[in-house]
Design a protein around this nucleic acid. Structure first.
Lengths: 276, 276
DNA sequence: TCCTTGTTGTGATCACTGCTCTCGTTGGTG
DNA sequence: CACCAACGAGAGCAGTGATCACAACAAGGA
């Protein structure tokens, strides 16, 4: 199988040939990424890549056995990039500021997506290669999800989550629902109750839903500046999951003037949420 | 501009030729839709369409001046289909059961999406034709959004919404945020306060976020049965928007057993939410 | 050192695509 | 009837992904 050539079963020796191969593979991916960033995945052309690198059009098949394999490599890199952005944003927060970590991860994902819209579309838009994600994408794909899950599960482990006391009751989940998310809880939320895991999934998919709407033009001529809407949605969803309010950079008490707002004055709740 | 040919500037007479033209246009779209449903939009081939219809490959350009125009026509049809599904589900509910209407619309959208995954991807995945949606798609695209907005705005008009009394305070939205959604409120939520409009956007994008994750394989090997998760997320988001609980088909009182659940027992709230 | 082996780059080639052009044919209209 | 615009068919162009045989060459063992 030719795929093994670039998938790790390389000759163990670090000879001249192996180094040249690694270098050219990187150059091909770099040029392909440039084309995807410029024109989108659907107009990525292997021949154009080889032209830019000054090689014969058939030579590229020594490195990537098909166009889909090259795209898969780009997908893996994109997953890794967004995962790294999320992890770094998380690591920059105080570990016990779970609300702040949630917002930081969400905003890091959105920032990366806006900076790399075509790579976002490659990964979270319609799957371009034959509808079936290769196995080697699941690891990098899990990275960003696990970054979020660590925040939720950490808060749950510390007893800061659970059903928010202000929330009216939903019925307990039945057996079907519990079974449906059993492996999810096993993999990502071992310390969280099932209801929290479902809210986390809702919040997480909400994040990608609003980013997709923004990047794919569904807000065109309707919401011109998405940032404040996104920030507030991120806070609302974090609150739904049950996070304590984020500390914020300055830790300032919110300048809430309930009378001037259209919000209903809360009944005897002293916990105050405010924008970061 | 050739686009006028199929865009309405047809000879006013309803002669034999015009009827043939309309018939063939419909046949082309039907065959193209069949191909998209089978293989996805990226592998839609004009020549394959013409082959299936037994015509010369060049003849199709008399009806659609380019591949993108054919795809745009399919996009318009898909928008109309999902919009119609949402409207019909809404119309089947009692007009004052806003919680039930919200859930019905959401489930209708998901059902249509699962039944037509490639058409969903065509519309809500990465935009395939050159990143810029033609103007004639915005009308059909608004249809499903307005169906949802009517539910939210109707509930707000009847005074059933607003900030839920159980919700801890978020600060009022500042000028930037209010300006960002001014046109949105104008177009879709004239009777709703800004905070409700933002929650509606969050809930709406959450719906498409979870559907996209399901259809595009991001739940693969993590959540095998999405239905119960989706149903519960729909309820949670409807509650976040502020809808009263859905009446349900039987109107039965929920068989809630708080002790057996991992939910925290609510403090003195008598309103009960339950699954439809 | 030589010789075998496996990897690499090249050009030709195939099947296919979107799209354009020309050239007869035909339906609708004056 | 005569004219014209719309139509269908076919050839052709430029471009694509992919395969093949062939030549050049590095790597490693005898």
């Amino acid at each position: 199988m030719l795929l093994e050539c670039h998938a790790g079963v390389m000759p163990p020796s670090t000879g001249l040939r192996a180094r040249m191969r690694a270098e050219l593979t990187a150059e091909i991916k770099e040029e392909a990424r440039r084309q995807v960033a410029a024109e989108g995945a659907s107009s990525l052309s292997l021949r154009a890549v080889t032209r830019s690198l000054g090689m014969a059009s058939s030579a590229i098949y020594r490195y990537f056995p098909s166009r889909d394999d090259l795209l898969t490599a780009l997908i893996v890199d994109a997953y890794d990039a967004v995962g790294q952005a999320a992890e770094e944003a998380d690591a920059a927060c105080p570990p016990d500021d779970f609300g702040g970590r949630w917002c930081a991860v969400g905003q890091a994902v959105r920032s990366w997506s806006i900076a790399n819209p075509h790579e976002y579309a490659l990964v979270y838009g319609s799957p371009v290669p034959g509808y079936r994600a290769p196995q080697d994408t699941v690891g990098p794909a899990s990275r960003v999800t696990l970054a979020m899950a660590r925040v939720v599960d950490g808060a749950a482990r510390d007893g800061l989550l659970g059903n928010p006391s202000w929330s009216p009751p939903l019925p307990p989940m039945d057996g079907d629902a519990l079974g449906a998310i059993a492996t999810l809880i096993d993999l990502a939320f071992p310390n969280a109750p099932a209801e929290v895991a479902v809210r986390a999934v809702a919040a997480w998919t909400q994040l990608f839903g609003i980013i997709s709407f923004e990047l794919f033009g569904h807000f065109h001529n309707v919401i011109d500046e998405v940032s404040p809407v996104f920030d507030r949605a991120l806070l609302e969803m974090g609150r739904l999951v049950g996070f304590p309010p984020p500390l914020g950079t300055a830790g300032r008490i919110a300048d809430v003037a309930p009378g001037a707002s259209s919000e209903v004055v809360p009944d005897g709740e002293d916990e105050v949420w405010f924008l970061v």
